[in-house]
Simulated scan of single mutants.
Amino acid sequence: MITIDADLQDDPDKIPEMIEHYKNGCEIVYGVRSDRQTDFWFKRNTAESFYKLMNQMDVTMIPDSADFRLMSNRAVYALLKYSERNLFLRGLVPQLGFQARKVYYQRMAQLAGETKYPFKKWLVWRSMELRH
């Protein structure tokens, strides 16, 4: 299973590379941003602080990855065993313990529409993540 945001910012040209890692035995392949140039200053810095804080709390995360990932059937079924309704996938998927790789890509600017996470909504979302 490959998940990718519909806003066309993640690089679908990286999917064959993800599949190649899967064929070579990886159960999870993370799409990881090579930089955060498309983020505004505040978001870039709070994201960095968030990853540092989570690391201090011993939560294993893949910095600069989001929802662009490949997961094998085994990994998906392991994830489905969690009974929670509001899963924090960025923190949970690395905890599954499967062999994983990273594929780096340059995130593109949003081509159409407008963000579903304007600053105020994004700030509320981040504060909710920190409480969980």
Results as ranks from 00 to 15, higher is better:
67 D>R: 08
115 T>R: 07
82 Y>W: 13
26 C>N: 14
113 G>P: 04
29 V>G: 01
29 V>R: 02
95 Q>F: 05
41 W>K: 08
56 Q>K: 15
17 E>F: 04
113 G>M: 07
37 Q>V: 05
20 E>W: 09
11 D>L: 06
31 G>M: 02
20 E>G: 02
60 T>P: 00
107 R>I: 01
44 R>S: 02
10 D>N: 12
46 T>I: 15
68 F>R: 00
121 K>I: 09
116 K>L: 09
132 H>N: 11
128 M>G: 04
70 L>C: 03
91 G>T: 08
7 D>Y: 05
32 V>S: 01
66 A>F: 10
55 N>C: 07
35 D>V: 02
80 L>V: 07
46 T>E: 09
50 F>W: 08
95 Q>S: 12
131 R>A: 13
90 R>M: 06
118 P>N: 03
129 E>Q: 15
23 K>I: 01
111 L>S: 10
104 Y>S: 02
92 L>D: 05
101 R>V: 03
84 E>K: 11
112 A>D: 10
117 Y>V: 00
2 I>H: 09
37 Q>C: 07
59 V>P: 00
113 G>W: 11
14 K>L: 13
83 S>L: 03
41 W>M: 07
123 L>H: 06
79 L>W: 12
123 L>F: 14
111 L>V: 09
131 R>K: 15
64 D>F: 10
2 I>M: 08
47 A>L: 10
30 Y>A: 04
34 S>Q: 15
84 E>W: 05
38 T>V: 14
63 P>R: 00
31 G>Q: 04
123 L>Q: 08
13 D>S: 14
48 E>P: 01
67 D>I: 08
66 A>P: 01
102 K>M: 08
1 M>I: 11
38 T>N: 11
131 R>Q: 07
93 V>W: 05
88 F>T: 03
76 V>R: 06
29 V>I: 09
116 K>S: 09
28 I>C: 12
105 Y>P: 04
110 Q>V: 06
36 R>F: 06
84 E>V: 08
64 D>T: 03
130 L>Y: 11
50 F>E: 01
88 F>H: 07
61 M>Q: 02
86 N>W: 09
42 F>M: 14
101 R>N: 04
